[in-house]
């Protein structure tokens, strides 16, 4: 099938329009963070940095950011350990029930978030009798973060095969030595990518969070959500949203750097 010049131009046009639609709402949030109108009248009547200043001084937003970072760091750490273990087990061993295990790992993201949320909340409160709070939040976030680490690690292990590990074992290195000297360095950039994704997933999560957070703790998404419908808080919420859009470029940049080093590693082989 050769695409005619007309088709090519049409495809380019559709892609262009799609990108425009993808970025227009994000640009609107950025622009509105400078809009003098508190109700975001369009087109803006004037520009101001007042809201950015107000957001910078917002205690609630600051505290919420810290809570989110703490939860995301802990959830990512758990996901890194469990995800790597599961990836090694599934990629380096053949055993009965392998398909079931891999299905089990994707289940927390394949099932709707409300289901995971209510199931965990119910298990914590009515079954075990733990009060909802920071601990339950970290546990629930780690549950759906495992899969991102797992996916990245499995893809890498599949691509590299087990030859180097076998060689290491044949040369007399033990299980742990082989893991730390051979397997882990091979996995490093994929674990970084998976960990980054897990962090972002946890930092951003709201659906499971609303069920397992309990009273008194506010993550950043919860803070945004609770202030979203308050007219006098609207400009500050909008600034936080704008800041998050700007910050979302950072992980992309890191991921590109990681991909870059991978390519140079591949080229060196």
């Amino acid at each position: 099938m050769t695409l005619s010049p007309l088709t090519r131009r049409l495809l380019a046009l559709i892609t262009g329009v799609a990108l425009l639609v993808v970025y227009a709402p994000l640009m609107l949030v950025l622009l509105n963070s400078f809009n003098t109108s508190q109700s975001f009248a369009w087109p803006p009547t004037g520009l101001t940095t007042r809201w950015w200043q107000a957001a910078w001084e917002s205690q609630g937003a600051r505290a919420a950011i810290w809570t989110s970072v703490e939860v995301a760091v802990l959830a990512t750490a758990i996901a890194l350990v469990l995800g790597t273990m599961a990836a090694l087990a599934l990629q380096r061993f053949a055993f009965f029930g392998r398909d079931f295990v891999s299905l089990l790992i994707i289940l927390p993201i394949a099932l709707p978030g409300v289901v995971t949320g209510i199931a965990l909340a119910n298990a914590f409160t009515t079954m075990i009798g733990i009060e909802l709070g920071f601990f339950t939040l970290v546990v629930s976030h780690a549950t759906f973060c495992i899969v991102t680490v797992f996916n990245n690690a499995v893809a890498r292990l599949r691509r590299l095969g087990g030859n180097l590990e076998e060689a290491s074992m044949d040369l007399g290195a033990g299980t742990f030595r082989t893991f730390f000297k051979i397997t882990l360095p091979m996995l490093r950039s994929s674990l970084l990518a998976g960990g980054l994704l897990a962090f972002a997933l946890s930092f951003d999560e709201i659906i499971v969070t609303t069920f397992t957070v309990g009273q008194g703790i506010q993550t950043l998404p919860i803070w945004i959500y609770q202030n979203l419908f308050r007219p006098n808080q609207a400009p500050v919420v909008n600034v936080v949203a704008a800041a998050l859009i700007v910050l979302s470029v950072v992980p992309i940049w890191i991921a590109q750097r990681l991909a870059g080093t991978d390519e140079s590693v591949a080229a060196a082989h």
Partner: peptide, 9 residues
Amino acid sequence: WASYLVKAY
């Protein structure tokens, strides 16, 4: 990578 909530917002 942009927040889900921010996009809905």
